[in-house]
Every structure is written in C-alpha cells, then in structure tokens.
C-alpha cells in the first residue's frame, strides 16, 4: 500500500466556522479545517500539522483560541467524537518559552503535573523520565535563567508533556535558530509527535521549508485581496496540503525530492498573495 492509500482515522480536531473580531476589525473569518488521525500499520503514528501564513494574519490568535485562552465570536471547536475539547487536553508552547523563573527545571515540570491532578510523586517520576528523554537530566536543578535557548525550548515542550495532551500547539518554534539547532528541533517535534498514536503537534511558523520537512499536513491561513491588492479583513484557510498523500512525509530524503522543491516554490508563490 502506498502512502497515498493510507487510511485516515477519526477526527482529532475540527475547527468549524471560527470567527474573531478585535477592536471591531475582523481577524478570523469562518476558519474551518479538520485534523484526522494518521494510521500506519504496526506503527505508532502521531502527526505534525503546520499553519503557515504571513505576519499579522491571525495565526497566533487562532492558536490561542485552540488553547482555550481566547473565545471566538462565532464557531465551534471539537475533538474526537465531535465533543468539545476537554479542559487540559491542549498544550501550548509559547514563542518565548515562558517558564516559572523562580522554579528549577525539575520543579517546573512537577508543577505541570500537579496542576493537572497528578500527585507530587507521580509528577516527579514523570518529570524525571521526560528530562532523561530530552537529555536534560543534568540540568534538572538549574533555574530557567541558566539555560540556553535550545534547552529552554526543550524544557517548555517537556513541561507540556508531563500530562499527556492530544494536541500540542507551538508558536514559532523555528524562529531564530541556527541550522543545527533547527534540525534538532525538527527531529524533536517528530519524536514527540510519534510518542502517541493520537498526538497532534500544530506548529505556527513562517519557515516554509522547516514546516514542509516536519509536517504531514500544511494549512495556509491568509486573507483575500481586492483587485487593487489591498487585503480584505478576515483570514481564512486558503489552502490545505496533504503531504502524506503527496508522498512527502515520513521519509528522510525529502529535500532531494523534486516534488518537495516544487511544492516549496508553490507555497512561497502563494505566500505573497495572502
């Protein structure tokens, strides 16, 4: 069976006609999309979904709505079985990786567990496991101010994984990284996504190439334009790219594929018009 014939499973996230106004300006206009479980025979397959779009188009606002931090003016969010997303089921790694500055790395992770109903001992055990997995166990007693940018990012991700969350949102995880660090982060995202069959990582980014390299699906958020080129308020989903169906996911040699390069060019071209 080719990858394009892979069955897709249940709906994990459905965003239905979500609209948002801020200060009277329409930011999101009936944004609609869904994310389905990716299924591979005998393999735990989570997924990475990217949300691409120009600056200021409302990507972060959409993430905040998905995280339950903002309430849309209209529309509905549902999870599996068409039910509202249960509280605590969505993680959010913010762009600047905020951590509790007065707590050590280990304590930051423990708090993430105890906030979600785990006992202190359970949270500590889980935190230790995650620190080991993220190669941060030697930094467990450090304060956030003592961490490098990359370490801080890993702690912020680990913090969201102390209690399993089906949907992990990440705001600009690739910004300001050198090529080696970028590769590490991409590898980490894929690893985290495949930790659980129903895991979905949704990444908001401007980095088209990085998004294409890690994603199974790419959504493009953008505004329509008047004939004279001025944007019409209210962003919506302007395009969906199923990279699994195109054979551009789950492989190492993506950057050598002509189809990959062609898609990258195509998305770059569309980017200018959004």
């Amino acid at each position: 069976m080719s990858v394009s014939e892979m069955p897709s499973g249940q709906v994990l996230l459905r965003v239905d006609e979500v609209s948002l106004r801020l200060g009277g300006t329409l930011i999101l206009d009936r944004v609609t999309f869904e994310v389905r479980d990716r299924i591979r025979q005998d393999q735990v397959t989570g997924q990475v979904v990217s949300l691409l779009g120009p600056s200021g188009v409302g990507k972060t606002r959409l993430l905040r709505i998905l995280a339950g931090l903002d309430t849309p003016d209209a529309g509905r969010l549902t999870g599996p079985d068409n039910r509202p997303l249960p509280p605590g089921s969505v993680g959010f790694v913010f762009q600047h990786y905020p951590l509790l500055r007065h707590r050590t790395v280990l304590e930051n992770l423990i708090i993430a567990g105890t906030c979600n109903g785990m006992t202190h001992d359970e949270a500590r055990q889980r935190a230790r496991q995650l620190l080991q997995r993220f190669q941060l166990d030697h930094r467990s007693s450090f304060y956030p101010a003592q961490l490098s940018g990359g370490q801080r990012q890993r702690v912020a991700i680990a913090q969201q994984l102390v209690r399993h969350k089906g949907l992990l949102l990440m705001d600009e995880p690739f910004s300001g990284l050198d090529p080696a660090a970028l590769e590490d982060v991409m590898r980490l995202l894929i690893e985290v996504a495949h930790m659980h069959e129903l895991n979905t990582i949704m990444v908001v980014t401007h980095d088209i190439r990085a998004a294409l390299l890690v994603s199974d699906t790419v959504f493009m958020l953008g505004r329509d334009r008047h004939p004279d080129g001025t944007p019409i308020p209210g962003a919506r989903i302007q395009g969906v790219y199923d990279l699994v169906a195109r054979g551009l996911a789950w492989r190492e040699d993506l950057e050598d594929q002509p189809a990959f390069l062609q898609l990258e060019r195509e998305i770059k071209g569309r980017f200018r018009s959004l």
Binding site: R64, A67, G68, L69, P87, G88, V90, G91, F92, F94, H96, P98, L99, L100, R103, I111, A112, C115, N116, G117, Q159, Q160, R163
Partner: peptide, 20 residues
C-alpha cells in the same frame, strides 16, 4: 504570557496567584 502559560498547564486561578 505568564498567566496564560499557567492556564495552559491547567493551573487553577488560586495556583496562578500563588506561583505567578
């Protein structure tokens, strides 16, 4: 962002008041 961070972690408002 510090309040939002704790909310996303699932902290109660009392816990947020204490920690943040």
């Amino acid at each position: 962002e510090r309040f939002d961070h704790m909310r996303v972690l699932g902290a109660s408002e009392a816990r947020i008041l204490w920690e943040v």
